[in-house]
Each structure stands twice: as structure tokens, then as C-alpha cells.
Design a protein around this nucleic acid. Structure first.
Length: 304
DNA sequence: TATCCAAGGTAAGTT
DNA sequence: AACTTACCTTGGATA
């Protein structure tokens, strides 16, 4: 086992681990105390979280188990390998969130959201797992979306040993494509089961790779992702924002639709693409997705 | 205890 | 192209 600490003062801006991994951006992390989405982390936010990381271009060549918690000195980690680059990648520790906050519009709603959840960062999930997670998110609560991903991993993913326990990686496209619709329904995916199976098949067969969207311009990338089954504009925007680094993407989910109706009625333009452009402009353009994530989290937790 | 409802939407079928 | 409707599942609210 390797271990280490990423010192807080090495980061550009602050960091809030719980807000980052429990804000509905990623469904690939788990809390060791099993209380994901249910309570404030024990001991003032010092709960351990863990995930199994697939091979990532330029970051890691093999699967790794990573465990992290936030302590006063910074981000403490334990892993099967050196996890500094992995964590920097997955949790976007290289983002200068003070600069992003400064560049965002000075409006009461936005400022309150940044204030309330200071230190929350966007995530950078592995593309395939992110795509499947958000196909599963349709009409679903966060706790159950998370449960679906857990069951997919437990049932169909490779095992990895770490710290005396057996972990399961998120299934590869081949592994998911090989399952039947009913096997996926048994994991409580409901009507999303055939979407997941067919999308996995598309990736496994080499018909399309979600990671390739990264090379396109924003709106073309969104259009590209909608070729996958079960992926409309909203899910596509989530993958662009939470995996592929399109920080300008603003997923128009129910919470943001409500925010538009209540705070930015002029942005209501009818179609998804038009409304999306308007709210993206309203949220400052380049980092509009960061603003969206803060506002989403703020509103979902009862803020007005 | 039974019933109802909504949850970070999408695909397929109609105008 | 814009508008409707069906779709799995289940925890929590309501009767």
C-alpha cells in the first residue's frame, strides 16, 4: 500500500471533498461508512471515500484502488499505487477555483452558492463509466443512481484486491455489452437496462467512443454523444461537464429549469439548444458549468 | 396497511 | 420540427 498527503496549500484555492463527491456529479465514489448522501460526514467532513480507477490515458496504465479523506493538512490518500496524479485528474485539483469564482457573474444567487459550498470542484470521471451513470440517472434519485453503479460493478466488473478487501472495477464496455437486458433489470435499472446494454455494445464494437467527443467543439460534441442509446441533450451535457472537461456545458435538468423560471425567465427560449446558450451566457460563458454545479447543489439542498 | 407520487429524461409515435 | 406519452423502480408521503 502506498500513501501520502496532498497539502492544502499546494492547491489553487480551497477544496471540499464531501461536496465534490456527494453533489450528484459522480456516482463512482463510495463512503466507507456507507452513509453516502445521507448525513454530514463524520468528524467534521473527515469521512473516507474510495473508488476503483480504470486505466486513464497519461495518468495510470492499470486499475488502481484509491481511498481519500480530507484532513486539516490536506487530502490524505492510500492506494495500490501513487495516487497524486490520479486524484489531481479525478478531482480537478489543478483548477483555480478562486479565479473561476472571480470570473463568474456577481449575482446574489450565484454568490450565495459559491459561499455556501466553497471548495467544491467539478469531477473528471472516466468517460465510459460517466456515460453509463448518467444514462441511469433518468428520472432517478441520487442514492439510487449510485446503487445501480455499485451493483453493475459488483456483478460484472473485474475484482481488485486492496487492504484485505475485494473491490470491483466499473465494468468495461465488453463486460456490459455481454450482459442481457434482463440481467441489467435484475440490478434495478428498469427501462434504462436496454439503453445501457445497447450503448455498451456500441462502444465495445468500436462504433463510437465517448472520449472522442473531447476533440470536437462544444455543441458538436453534445450532438456526437446523443448517438448513444438513452442519451439526450441533458445526459450529453453531463458527460461533457463531468468527464470530458467542457466547463461551459450547462445540463438543463429539472433544478436548473426551475432556476431559469424563477431567476432568469428571459433565458427560457423553448428549445434545449437555445435555452442552453442563453443560460450559458447568463452564467458567464467559459466556466458556466462550474456555476451551474454550484447553483444546482445550492438549490437541491434547500437554498433559495 | 394500501395507494400514490415523483425522481437530475429519453425514445417513439402523433400532429 | 414541435408536442405527447409510455416507461421501470421504489422510498417516502398521504389517506
Amino acid at each position: 500500500m502506498e500513501r501520502g498527503v496532498i497539502a492544502t496549500d499546494e492547491l489553487a484555492g480551497s477544496f471540499d471533498l464531501q461536496s465534490t463527491v456527494e453533489s450528484g456529479q459522480s456516482y463512482l465514489w463510495s463512503r466507507l461508512d456507507g452513509k453516502m448522501y445521507t448525513t454530514a460526514a463524520a468528524h467534521g467532513g473527515r469521512a473516507w471515500y474510495e473508488t476503483v480507477v480504470p486505466p486513464l490515458d497519461g495518468v495510470t496504465d492499470e486499475r488502481a484502488v484509491v481511498r481519500v479523506r480530507q484532513v486539516d493538512e490536506g487530502i490524505e490518500w492510500k492506494s495500490t499505487t501513487d495516487a497524486v496524479d490520479i486524484l489531481t485528474h479525478l478531482l480537478r485539483l489543478d483548477d483555480d477555483i478562486d479565479a473561476i469564482r472571480d470570473a463568474s457573474p456577481s449575482e446574489p444567487l450565484i454568490e450565495r452558492a459559491f459561499e455556501q459550498y466553497a471548495g467544491m470542484r467539478l469531477v473528471r470521471d472516466p468517460p465510459f463509466a460517466c456515460l453509463i451513470s448518467f444514462i441511469c440517472s433518468a428520472q432517478m434519485r441520487v442514492g439510487r443512481i449510485h446503487g445501480m453503479q455499485q451493483r453493475l460493478a459488483a456483478g460484472f466488473g473485474e475484482t481488485v484486491a486492496f487492504d484485505g478487501r475485494t473491490y470491483h472495477a466499473f465494468p468495461t464496455p465488453d463486460q456490459l455489452a455481454a450482459r442481457t437486458e434482463s440481467e441489467l433489470r435484475e440490478r434495478s435499472l428498469g427501462y434504462r437496462a436496454p439503453y445501457v446494454q445497447r450503448t455498451a455494445e456500441m462502444v465495445a464494437d468500436g462504433e463510437a467512443d465517448p472520449a472522442n467527443a473531447a476533440e470536437l467543439d462544444y455543441e458538436a460534441a453534445r450532438e456526437f454523444l446523443t448517438q448513444f442509446v438513452g442519451v439526450g441533450d441533458k445526459v450529453a451535457d453531463c458527460v461533457l461537464l463531468f468527464s470530458l472537461g467542457f466547463l461551459e456545458a450547462v445540463p438543463l435538468d429539472t433544478w436548473i429549469q426551475t432556476a431559469i423560471a424563477d431567476y432568469y425567465p428571459d433565458c427560457e427560449q423553448g428549445g434545449y439548444a437555445e435555452t442552453s446558450r442563453a443560460i450559458r451566457e447568463q452564467f458567464g460563458g467559459e466556466y458556466a458549468g462550474y456555476v451551474q454545479t454550484y447553483v444546482f447543489h445550492y438549490l437541491r439542498n434547500g437554498g433559495e
